[in-house]
C-alpha cells in the first residue's frame, strides 16, 4: 500500500496538470500554427466556388498564407477585418479577421497585402448579387 500511494499521487497530479493545461491552453492562431498552404486570393476563392465541400475538407482550420489586394478594412470594438478582392466574375472576396494585437501600421485600400489566417470556410452567394466569401480568422499580417 505504501508503495502504491506515491504512484497514485503522481498520477492524480499529472491528471490535474493536464486538465489545467487543457482549460487554459491558448487559442490557435495564424501566428502559432504551421503554414499549410500559400495561395493568392483569387485561386483560394475559385477552389471554394468550384468544389465547396472538397475545399472545406482540405482547408478547414488550416493556416493559409494569402496574397491579394485589399478592398476594405474595418476596425472597431468587435475586431479588425481585412477584405481582399478576387478576380472572380461574381465579385467574391476573401476576408480575414485579425487576432487582437498591436499593429503599428495597417495597409490601405488598394495595397497589395500578404496575410495568414485559419480557414473558417466559405459562404456562397445564393442571391447572385453579392458574390461569395471565403473567411479566415485568427489572422496576422505578414507584410
Amino acid at each position: 500500500m505504501k508503495k502504491i500511494a506515491p504512484i497514485v499521487f503522481f498520477v492524480i497530479l499529472l491528471g490535474l496538470g493536464f486538465a489545467y493545461y487543457q482549460w487554459n491552453k491558448p487559442k490557435k492562431s495564424a501566428a502559432s500554427e504551421e503554414v499549410f498552404a500559400h495561395r493568392n486570393a483569387t485561386d483560394l476563392y475559385m477552389e471554394f466556388t468550384s468544389d465547396p465541400t472538397g475545399a472545406f475538407q482540405i482547408y478547414n482550420q488550416r493556416n493559409i498564407e494569402v496574397r491579394g489586394v485589399m478592398d476594405a478594412f474595418s476596425k472597431d470594438s468587435l475586431g479588425t477585418k481585412l477584405t481582399l478582392r478576387t478576380e472572380s466574375a461574381d465579385g467574391g472576396i476573401v476576408t480575414i479577421t485579425l487576432v487582437d494585437e498591436m499593429i503599428a501600421s495597417f495597409p490601405v485600400i488598394g495595397d497589395s497585402v500578404h496575410i495568414r489566417g485559419l480557414c473558417a470556410g466559405y459562404i456562397p452567394d445564393d442571391t447572385g448579387l453579392l458574390g461569395g466569401e471565403v473567411q479566415l480568422n485568427q489572422g496576422i499580417i505578414v507584410n
Binding site: W23, K25, K27, Q61, T97, L118, A120, G121, N137
Partner: peptide, 12 residues
C-alpha cells in the same frame, strides 16, 4: 454563419 467563426472565451 460559419460555425468555426464562433469565438469562445476558452480554446477548449
Amino acid at each position: 454563419a460559419l460555425q468555426t467563426n464562433f469565438q469562445f472565451e476558452k480554446a477548449l
